[in-house]
Write a protein that binds this DNA or RNA. Structure first.
Length: 618
RNA sequence: GCCGAUAUGGCGUAGUAGGUAGCGCAACGCAUUCGUAAUGCGUGGGUCCGCAGUUCGAGUCUGCGUAUCGGCACCA
C-alpha cells in the first residue's frame, strides 16, 4: 500500500524508474503530436514526473492533455522494448542537433568521465542516464496532471518552456488511489476549510494578500498567541512590542534595504510641497544616495532591526546573556503576485519572532534550547510529519551572501555539530541560507502545493556587527554577541493554515473556535436548563452556545457536526430531571450521559492538558 | 513577475448554436414541538468581476484591467 501523503519517489526505486520511463513516453507522444517540439528532459519529482518542452509559438494547454494521454497509451500498447545505447559525445551532438537544450547539456559533459547513454523505444530515442523499465508495456497506468510554464535551468532570466506533469504507477489501483488522495487533499486545503469555518476572509477592496481574521479565526489566533507567549516566558524570553514600521535608515543599517527593497512596500514620506510632484523612482534614488532629507518610513518586513536597536540601547555584561527578546509582530512583505496563497503566504502576517543575543560559547546550548522548544510545541499539536533542513549558503553566490568564509564555515559547522549532537535527522540545502547566516528550517507539507517552512532557527554573526552591538566579557573587554533568530510557530497565519489542514478543521478542544453547542430537545421545555448551563460554562471560560431554533433535533445535531463544533450537549427530560448532560463528540456516533459536574471537570481537564481529538470512528 | 486556466445571489453550482438568468444549501415567514447527520409550505435576494468594443440584441464573442486557481521564479 502506497502512502501517497509521504510518497517520495526518490526513495522508491521501482516507482522512480517507472516514472522516469513514463516521462520519456510523454516526450515520445509529444514528438508524434507536435513534430516541431524541442525538448528538455524532466526529472522525477516526489510525486511524479515532468517533461519540459519548447514548442515555439505553439502551446500545450490543459485541454490538450487527454489527446497526449491517448497518444501515450498508444505508445504503451505498442509494447516496444526500451533499449540502452551508449554513444560518443560527437555522436550525441549529432543525434540531438535539433534539440538546443540537450546540446547545451551534452556540450557540458566530460566524455572521459561520463558515459553518454540513450534509450530507444520504437522510433523515439532520448538522451538519458537511465535506468528504465524494459518495455513500454509497463507504462500503462499513468495520468497527466497539470501543465505550466517553467524557466529553462530554473532561472527566471531564461526562456520559459512548457512543462507537463504526470504520475505513473504499476497498476490501476495505485493510480486510482493516488487520484482519490489528491481529491481528498483539496478538501483539506486551508483556504476551503478557512472559508467554511469563517476563519478568515479576503477582499479585493481591502487588497490582495491581506487576510482579515474573522471571530472564529481570531479565537484560534488569540489562543495560539497566548500559548506560545506563555511557553516562551517559562523559558526565559522577554517580550517586547515594537512599531510596525521603521525608518529606511534602520533597514539600510541592517542591510535588508539593499537585499530586499524590491519586495518591501514602497517607502512613505510626508506629502509636502517639495515632494508632491516627485516620482517614486526619484525618491528611491535619493534614498539610495542618502540625499533625501525628509523622514522616510517603510512597513517592516521583519523585526530583527528593531530588536537589534533594543539590545544596543544599553550596555550588556556577559552575565546578562543570553538575552532572549521576543515579539508577536506584524510584518509586511510585498510578495510576488503568484506567490500569495491564502494565509499560508500573505502580504501582511504575524510572526512569532525572537532574537537571542548570546556569547559564541552559548550558541550550542541556546540552539539546543530552541530545537527542544520546537519539538515540545509540535508534540502539543500532534505534528508528526516534518523534516529538518540545514540551509547553507551557496559560496558561488557572492551577491547574496556576505563574503567572509571563516564566519560562514564556523557558523555552518556549529549548526552541524549541534544537530549531530542531538541526533536529529536533517538534510542539507545549498543556497537556502539567509544573507546573514545559515539556518535550520522545519518543513511541512501543505495539502496543496510545495513544502513550506514552519519553524526556523538562524545563526547570525552579521547584524550584531552592523549595529555595532557589544557586551563586556569577564576580562572587561568589549565583544560582539551572536544573534540567533528563531520563530517557532513561524507565522501564526501559516501555522493556522497548516493546523487546519492537518486536522481538517477538527481542532482539539483547547483550540476549537466553537467548542460546545447545547441543544435542547424541545426548545419550549428544555431551554431554561440549556441556557443556565450555557451561562455557567461561558463563565468558566468555555466557548459555548445554545441552539434552540425551531428545528428537529436531528437537524441541529447535523448542523453542529457540519460546523465542526467539538462537542454537542443534548438536553432533554432525562437531563433536566437528573441534572445530567448527554454529549456527543464531533465525528463520533457514541453518546455519553454524565452528571453536569463530571462533565465540566472532564472538559476543564481536556482543555488544560491540551488533549488531542480521539481518533474518529471512520 | 512569468506560463496557463477560471470568475454567475452569503456558499456551492446550471446556463449546450449570442434573444435581457435557473437549481441546491443558507437567510426570512408560517405551520410543526419532533431524543442524535436534513419536517413541510411559502418569501426575499443576482448591474452574471470591472471597463471598453462587436451586434438590432452579450452571462454567452473580442480587447484591456482586476482577482482567484495550477505551476515556474521568489521567500529576509
Amino acid at each position: 500500500m502506497i502512502n501517497y501523503r509521504k510518497m517520495n519517489l526518490k526513495e522508491n526505486p521501482q516507482l522512480n524508474v517507472l516514472n522516469h520511463s513514463c516521462a520519456h513516453q510523454l516526450a515520445q507522444a509529444v514528438k508524434h503530436l507536435y513534430p516541431h517540439a524541442k525538448f528538455w528532459v524532466g526529472p522525477v519529482i516526489s510525486d511524479g514526473f515532468y517533461y519540459d518542452i519548447d514548442l515555439g509559438d505553439d502551446a500545450i494547454q490543459e485541454a490538450d492533455l487527454p489527446k497526449i494521454e491517448k497518444e501515450m497509451k498508444k505508445c504503451a500498447k505498442d509494447a516496444k522494448k526500451i533499449v540502452r545505447e551508449e554513444i560518443s559525445k560527437a555522436d550525441a551532438l549529432e543525434m540531438f542537433k535539433d534539440d538546443p537544450y540537450k546540446i547545451d547539456l551534452i556540450s557540458n559533459m566530460d566524455e572521459n568521465e561520463v558515459v553518454i547513454s540513450c534509450y530507444r523505444q520504437g522510433d523515439f530515442t532520448d538522451l538519458c542516464r537511465g535506468p528504465h523499465v524494459e518495455n513500454t508495456k509497463f507504462l500503462k497506468h499513468f495520468k497527466l496532471t497539470k501543465v505550466s510554464g517553467a524557466y529553462w535551468k530554473a532561472d527566471a532570466k531564461n526562456k520559459m518552456l512548457q512543462r507537463v506533469y504526470g504520475v505513473c504507477f504499476e497498476n490501476e489501483e495505485d493510480l486510482n488511489g493516488y487520484l482519490k488522495y489528491m481529491e481528498e487533499a483539496k478538501q483539506r486545503d486551508h483556504r476551503k476549510i478557512g472559508k467554511e469555518m469563517d476563519i478568515f476572509m479576503l477582499s479585493d477592496l481591502v487588497g490582495k494578500g491581506l487576510p482579515m481574521w474573522l471571530p472564529n479565526g481570531y479565537t484560534v489566533w488569540r489562543i495560539l498567541n497566548n500559548y506560545i507567549t506563555d511557553k516562551e516566558i517559562a523559558r526565559g524570553y522577554k517580550h517586547v512590542h515594537t512599531p510596525d514600521l521603521g525608518s529606511v535608515d534602520l533597514y539600510k543599517t541592517s542591510g535588508h534595504w539593499d537585499h530586499y527593497k524590491a519586495d518591501m512596500f514602497a517607502p512613505m514620506v510626508k506629502i509636502n510641497e517639495g515632494n508632491r510632484d516627485r516620482t517614486l523612482g526619484a525618491i528611491l534614488k535619493d534614498i539610495d544616495d542618502s540625499k533625501l532629507e525628509d523622514d522616510v518610513y517603510v512597513l517592516r518586513p521583519m523585526n530583527c532591526p528593531h530588536h537589534m536597536v533594543i539590545y544596543g540601547s544599553r550596555m550588556h555584561s556577559y552575565r546578562d546573556l543570553p538575552l532572549r527578546i521576543a515579539e508577536i509582530a506584524n510584518d509586511f512583505r510585498f510578495e510576488a503576485q503568484g506567490a500569495v496563497k491564502g494565509i499560508e503566504r500573505a502580504r501582511s502576517f504575524t510572526q512569532n519572532d525572537s532574537h537571542i543575543f548570546c556569547t559564541p560559547a552559548q550558541i550550542e546550548s541556546e540552539f539546543k534550547g530552541v530545537v527542544d522548544l520546537i519539538l515540545d510545541t509540535y508534540r502539543d499539536f500532534g505534528f508528526k510529519d516534518y523534516t529538518f533542513r540545514l540551509s547553507l549558503r551557496d559560496p558561488a553566490d557572492t551577491e547574496k551572501y556576505f563574503p567572509d568564509d571563516e564566519m560562514w564555515n564556523s557558523a555552518e559547522a556549529s549548526l552541524r555539530n549541534v544537530l549531530d549532537d542531538l541526533g536529529i535527522n536533517y538534510f542539507e540545502a545549498i543556497g537556502e541560507a539567509a544573507f546573514y547566516g545559515p539556518k535550520l528550517d522545519v518543513l511541512v507539507q501543505p495539502a496543496v502545493g510545495n513544502e513550506v517552512a514552519l519553524s526556523t532557527i538562524q545563526l547570525d554573526f552579521l547584524l550584531p556587527r552592523r549595529f555595532e552591538l557589544t557586551y563586556i566579557d569577564e576580562n572587561n573587554n568589549k565583544q560582539t554577541p551572536v544573534v540567533i533568530h528563531r520563530a517557532i510557530l513561524g507565522s501564526l497565519d501559516r501555522f493556522i493554515a497548516f493546523l487546519l489542514e492537518e486536522t481538517m478543521g477538527n481542532l482539539p478542544l483547547w483550540l476549537a473556535p466553537e467548542q460546545f453547542t447545547i441543544i435542547p430537545v424541545n426548545p419550549n421545555v428544555h431551554s431554561d436548563f440549556a441556557y443556565d448551563l450555557c451561562r455557567r460554562m461561558a463563565a468558566e471560560g468555555f466557548r459555548v452556545k445554545v441552539d434552540d431554533r425551531n428545528e428537529k433535533l436531528g437537524y441541529r445535531v447535523r448542523e453542529a457536526q457540519v460546523k465542526k463544533v467539538t462537542i454537542q450537549v443534548v438536553i432533554g427530560d432525562n437531563e433536566v430531571q437528573n441534572d445530567l448532560v448527554t454529549i456527543r463528540r464531533h465525528g463520533q456516533k457514541q453518546q455519553l450521559t454524565m452528571s453536569v459536574s463530571d462533565f465540566l471537570a472532564a472538559m476543564h481537564r481536556e482543555v488544560a492538558e491540551k488533549l488531542l481529538n480521539p481518533e474518529g470512528e471512520e
